[in-house]
Each structure stands twice: as C-alpha cells, then as structure tokens.
Design a protein around this nucleic acid. Sequence first.
DNA 1: GCGACAG
DNA 2: ATCTTGTCGC
Length: 266
Amino acid sequence: MEPVRPEFVPDPSLSQAEMEALQRDIADAARFEDDLAVSPARIGSEPTDTEQATLGETCDGAEPPIVAGVDQAFVGDRAVSAIVVLRDGEVVERVHAVERTEIPYIPGLLSFREGGAILAAFAELSHEPDVILVDGSGRIHFREAGLATHVGVTLDVPAVGVAKSLLCGTPDRSLDEKYPVGTRIPITADESVETCADGTRIGHAVQTRQYDSRNRHINPLIVSPGHRVAASTAADLVEATTDGYKLPEPTRLADSYADEAKASVE
DNA sequence: GCGACAG
DNA sequence: ATCTTGTCGC
C-alpha cells in the first residue's frame, strides 16, 4: 500500500523545527476515535477465549480481520523494517525493506529515522490490513504524533502503538509494581504533552503477561492510539492478539522476522 | 544548568 | 535499537 497523505511522509532532511511542525499537522489529522472494520463493539467487551486467539473470528458472517505487526532491526546505518500479516491467527504475508537511516535516534522524532523504511515495506505489501500494530508510541508523544500515529495517518490505516517503555505522560498508578494479567493503568497527558489538555487519557499500560513467582515481575506494555482507534480499543486489540507472550503475536512475529531479514543483510 | 526521553 | 554471560524458573 502507498501513502494516502504524501505530504506527511517523513523527510529526514527537515530541520528539527520543521519536523515538529509536521508532527503537529499529523496530530491534527489523526483520529483518536474508533473508525475501523474490526468490530470494536465486540472486541470492546470481555474477550471470549476464541476471540483471544483469533481476534474476531466469531464475528457473524464478517470477514476475518487482517492484522499486521511492524517492527525494525538495525545493521550499522541500515534500518530493516519487517511487516507480518495475520488473518485468523495465521501468517498470510511477510515483507521487509532495507533503507539507510539518515538521522540518529532522537526522542520524539523516531518516525523520521524509521518511517522511511516502514513505508518502503508497506509499498511491498499486497494485503490491506484492517489494523496495524506498530512498535513504539502513538498518541503517547510530546505532540501526539508518535511513530504509530505518523505511519497510520500517512497511510490512513487504523494503527495502534505498542511500546515497551513510557515516553511521556503520567500513569494513574506506579508502573513498577507487580500487576496481574489484564491490568490496565490509564496514562494521562501532563505538561510534557504540549498539544492537548492535561488529564486527557492518551493510552494505557497493559499487563499482557506476568510471572507466577513472587520474586521478579514483567513490565507492562505501553499501548496508545495511533490513528482511527480509541485508547480503550487499542488496549482491547493488543489483548485480543496476545497469546501467551508479552508482545501481541503480530508484533512478536514481526520482531523475529526483522532479525531474520537482518541476518540476510549483514 | 539539570533531568527525562519510544527505538 | 545493539552489544552479550549467566541465571532464574517452568
């Protein structure tokens, strides 16, 4: 698939001020409300065992939703972007692309480093995902325009941000405690999020896996809306696609595929 | 100036 | 993200 909003394609040659200005435009174009074909009403309620494994397989007469996971690996100054597409829990397509990274990692400007490779990979994709899970933040971002939002808005596809740590915002409760699977801790905007009112719910910490033993504990995932998805639905989608591991299956498979593709590059 | 900061 | 041994736990 190709960008629906070419003007938002991340350009690494922009000045930092220009990048930030573009992010404000992207946040403005982003929709943090449900506008996807993956039956949010059904997924929004308590997931059944079947839904947990296949995400919406029980939707009456509806086509099985197509979910894609996106992740990157790096080799020197090259970024390897991998996309794995699942339908009914089965991998139906995998594509990857390799692009040079033009700028270093700068907190808040990640999409300008990795976005090019991601869009190049999407250009090779033949399926049209109903929703994509992107590694990194979505709305949980200084200007509400994290990687998931940037990619989602540029392609105009429903997107969810799945990060392993918190970029900004304030959790309702400490994230350092041990919580049982299923726990959701709201993340609200604070003064570091300059584009929306303090107190706005911009995402959740979601405990998708936990150890039985009392000693150590697993950190929750940080889930936020990327585009055309509400915060609670984003968390629902992550839970519905998780299957025994901390990361949701699409993301986990994209992660290993990125490493696999990386090996064939170095 | 100091601290914080997705991947 | 990446560089990496050992170690804990099921």
